[in-house]
């Protein structure tokens, strides 16, 4: 393919989804500069593999590349981010106990979120989720992708998408409910 038409194809296929790509990279790396580095590398890969794109969802295709690039990048530069030892008490009791997810604060989180501090906390709580839960929550809640699309991007079966989303939300829910203090 001549470079000029390849460039045009890049603009048509990749460019409309650059914000989605950056958003995912930023949530996975949790750092502006790291996310920009990953985006740069992902864009170059997307350009390189453009001939191989025949699917119907350019967004899923690009996000698959971004996710893969993020993981390689984190492995190389921030290995700790991938091996976060997750708090067993949180994790273990997170989703499966009978009372794990049915506590609702009297006024509901809407009332809690009126306080500015709480807003920052939701941001932080999501950032603190282990990466495998964080990515499915971001792809579902911020990108509005279907389980099928998320499964394709993260290379996991749909059942795993559902269970990770469920675990991730349980953890956030417990934070929102204030049932887990910072020490536990």
């Amino acid at each position: 393919m001549p470079n000029s038409s390849k460039r045009a194809q890049f603009e048509r296929v990749v460019l409309p989804h650059l914000n989605a790509a950056y958003n995912l990279a930023r949530w996975l790396t949790r750092d502006d500069h790291d996310a920009q580095d990953v985006l740069q590398e992902s864009s170059m890969r997307a350009y390189q593999y453009l001939d191989g794109f025949h699917g119907d969802s350019a967004k899923s295709w690009l996000l698959t590349i971004v996710r893969h690039t993020c993981y390689s990048w984190l492995e190389k530069n921030r290995p700790a981010a991938l091996t976060t030892v997750f708090d067993e008490q949180l994790h273990g009791a997170g989703g499966d106990g009978p009372h794990a997810d049915n506590t609702v604060p009297a006024d509901g989180p809407e009332a809690l979120l009126q306080q500015k501090q709480e807003r920052h906390q939701v941001q932080r709580w999501l950032e603190e989720l282990p990466v495998e839960f964080r990515e499915v929550v971001v792809l579902r809640e911020l990108e509005g992708l279907s389980y099928k699309e998320i499964g394709e991007i993260a290379a996991i079966p749909i059942g795993t998408v559902m269970s990770r989303l469920s675990r991730g939300r349980n953890l956030l829910q417990r934070k929102l409910n204030g049932t887990v203090d910072e020490e536990s």
Partner: peptide
């Protein structure tokens, strides 16, 4: 449980930031 689920979604969708490039 269902209500709690809806609330956690509202919290994330309304409070978590969408980063633009």
């Amino acid at each position: 449980r269902h209500e709690a689920r809806r609330w956690v979604r509202v919290a994330v969708q309304s409070q978590a930031r969408y980063f633009t490039v």
